[in-house]
Write a protein that binds this DNA or RNA. Structure first.
Lengths: 212, 212
DNA sequence: CGGAAAAACTACGAAACCGTAGCGTAGTGT
DNA sequence: ACACTACGCTACGGTTTCGTAGTTTTTCCG
């Protein structure tokens, strides 16, 4: 939206203002969700005048949309050579994110809003893509290698991986401990197709030990 | 909260008012989530004076809390005699609920609010219990029968069942079609423990047919 | 039918919010 | 050095909201 790239000799002031505003907006989203963000409070908190905010964003909605769009964290796609290793890294990373404060406090708000606002729905779709693409890539790559049953829908495999984690964090609110993550991984690998497993079906948490 | 039981000769008027208010509140929650409910609008919509609303609920929060607490739908626990049959019925029922309008539009809002408001967190916990208890019952019953591996945590099994459904509905927003539901069921039964399966590991969707 | 309880109505006060306008000031790029 | 632009500040208008008070009207119960 804001072309930050390009050495067009952009004014430093706008960059500083925009950064400060976005930071404060993010901070307020952490505390109160999307509904907890008011332009007045953003202005108050970051020291940027309200008029300046409206100079850069046409409306409060646009500001929120912009802030949400910048939440995508580029997750590096691992490549351990095997599906199990890749997924282990990805799932552990996701679990860490879910245990930390941060977007666990924001995502529900975005999802709620996306249920009604089409613009936010688009933003959520992109955010979701950026979060889940690594998983999908790993699964599809394994599928091409033949490590996964061909009749499994890759998106469904991903769902069986991350769904339980999300459920655990937001719906059941039970602890997201290592045993749970291990079990999810174990299950998903079973699902995926058994071709890649080496007799791990019997020992549930056994795999988690060495990998750590 | 409101003791509706008791033949204390309750006044009809209060019953009518409370019912109308709660209905309008629910309706507004459907349209705009928790944030979309204002006492003024509730009053406007159901024809009950605002002062009357405040006579029955001390604050807007209390009204929302009450409305949320009454969302629990008593799901009958099926008993087909087998884990597969029970789960099939339960999961299909859940998928139907997720496809319909109704609490798919409200739950994200509750979850978002529960992230910050302890009272709503409690309400959400109870709501969650009422929704998930049938699943947990089915799984634990199967476990007692020995149809499930003993080293599986029942709550994790439930998570592997319903997590993907929730994920699909709210996070990925991909269609919640029959094939997906079948695959989830298939997976979860594998997870649960293999004791109950009869060589179905090879045939993915095959199981869903006979069970019906 | 009559007393009592509940509800409706009107009005209010205080706060928060969005978005805009005008004007003086300070910083930037050339 | 200078013109330009962004910024801060103050102030406003309009709307929405929460919650309360006082008064009158309707409705129920015995």
């Amino acid at each position: 939206m804001v072309e930050a790239v390009e050495p067009v000799g952009r004014d430093k002031r706008v960059a500083r203002s925009q950064a400060a505003v976005l930071a404060a907006t993010y901070e307020l989203m952490l505390e109160g969700g999307l509904a907890g963000v008011s332009v007045d409070e953003v202005s108050r908190r970051c020291g940027v005048a309200k008029t300046t905010i409206y100079r850069h964003w046409p409306s409060r909605s646009a500001l929120l949309l912009d802030a949400c769009s910048q939440m995508g964290t580029a997750v590096p796609v691992p490549d351990t050579g095997g599906l199990a290793g890749d997924l282990h890294i990805l799932v552990e990373g996701l679990a860490d994110q879910l245990r930390a404060p941060g977007w666990p406090a924001i995502l529900p708000s975005i999802i709620d809003a996306a249920e009604r606002d089409p613009d936010l729905a688009r933003a959520h779709a992109e955010l979701h893509r950026s979060l889940m693409d690594p998983f999908l890539d790993a699964v599809e790559q394994a599928r091409r290698r033949g490590d996964i049953r061909g009749d499994r829908d890759p998106t469904a495999v991903v769902a069986s991986l991350v769904g339980p984690l999300f459920y655990r964090r937001w719906f059941s609110r039970e602890p997201l401990d290592a045993a749970f993550v291990d079990q999810v991984l174990d299950v998903a690998l079973d699902v995926a197709g058994a071709a890649a497993r080496q007799g791990s079906t019997s020992g549930g948490g056994a795999r988690s030990g060495p990998v750590r």
